[in-house]
């Protein structure tokens, strides 16, 4: 036993050196080159957040975040199946991105200045705007965050959500007992069993989780938000080509909706479009995106195979889904929301 202990010790310096070698990204080859050579995008999704990223009964990943990755695959390969879904716990996502195990994170991680600037991450765009609030059992007779003084609150460890929760109670001079979890599934199970009085995160995620509760009707998602949050995919800092590619696809999805281009009419418009902006978007004029290696007509393919942002939203989280989320801040700018794309020229 002692002999073994001592022998294993050699692993310590060896591990140090190997660990460093693995965590320092290889200089050669960009993310885009790597994706092209394996013909597959490695998309880091959640462990199952219905509406955003969750496998359906047949094991196929479905959701808003999932369709963003599919749109990327269509833009690059004209085939939305060219995605390798990598399901990760929150604490694993940043190490996985840094080590190159995944090309992008697409699982509802909040944008903060610190993450963008100090942590070597880039947020190429926005998939939804939100804020943070609480879900409580209706039996608790609590409807506003201000009534939660002294409560036990379930929260995911190390998240921006945890920091916001903390800021809120500090600002109000309230006390709370945190019940910090590492695993999302376990946290919501524990909440359902009454381990905490409230659970906190953004309303879309709460709605998503509530939709699979045993008695969704027994739980209230508070209307009042305690923060503003911006959510979108995350890529590693320092690879402009890949970041631009993700960025232009996100813009493209919004621009498609702005111009009323849908899955249904895209094929027709590809032949008949006369408006210059639409012709440029669909690849009938100009070569937008060629600079980062996208082929002519990539956005038209995205429109045909995935659809525009509004369609993706409505299909996965909109009013007619179990999540039933209104567009709100996520409507187009011309409808009073915050979604906007620069002109395609």
């Amino acid at each position: 036993m002692r002999q073994l202990d001592v022998k294993c010790l050699w692993a310590v310096p060896l591990g140090l050196v190997l660990g460093m070698a693995a965590s320092v990204p290889a200089a050669a080859g960009t993310v885009v080159d790597a994706i092209n050579s394996r013909s597959e995008i490695r998309c880091g999704v959640s462990q199952g957040t219905p509406g955003f990223s969750a496998p359906d009964s047949a094991g196929n990943w479905k959701g808003l975040d999932v369709e963003i990755c599919e749109a990327l695959a269509v833009a690059m390969f004209n085939d939305k199946s060219k995605v390798d879904w990598i399901s990760l716990q929150f604490s694993q996502v940043f190490p996985a991105l840094n080590s190159g195990d995944i090309d992008l994170i697409n699982r509802s991680i909040l944008k903060t200045v610190g993450r963008d600037v100090d942590m070597g991450l880039e947020y190429p765009g926005v998939t939804y705007f939100s804020g943070q609030t609480f879900m409580v059992p209706k039996a608790l007779n609590v409807t506003k965050p201000q009534q939660l003084n002294g409560a036990t609150i379930c929260v995911l460890g190390g998240t921006g959500t945890q920091a916001t929760l903390n800021d809120y109670f500090r600002e109000k001079g309230f006390t709370y007992t945190p019940a910090v979890f590492e695993d999302q599934d376990l946290m919501y199970q524990a909440y359902e069993q009454g381990r905490c009085d409230a659970v906190t995160t953004e309303p879309p995620i709460l709605a998503s989780r509530r939709s699979v509760f045993q008695a969704p009707g027994d739980h209230l998602i508070m209307e009042e938000l305690i923060s503003k949050e911006i959510v979108g995919p995350i890529v590693k800092h320092g690879d402009d080509e890949w970041r631009d590619l993700v960025k232009v696809v996100l813009w493209g999805l919004v621009a498609l909706e702005e111009e009323g281009i849908t899955q249904a009419n895209a094929a027709e418009l590809r032949k008949t479009a006369t408006k210059p902006e639409v012709r440029r978007m669909l690849g009938l004029e100009g070569e937008l995106g060629k600079g980062i290696g996208l082929r002519t007509g990539w956005l038209a393919d995205v429109a045909e195979k995935v659809g525009n942002y509004g369609e993706i939203y409505d299909r996965n989280v909109g009013p007619n889904t179990p999540l039933g989320l209104k567009r709100g801040l996520n409507a187009l700018w011309k409808d009073g929301g915050l979604m906007i794309s620069p002109p395609f020229r």
Binding site: M119, G120, G157, G158
Partner: peptide
Amino acid sequence: MMISNSIITITGRAF
């Protein structure tokens, strides 16, 4: 482990 995971996700200092 959990505390270290929290620190890693907040500071990015995994190694």
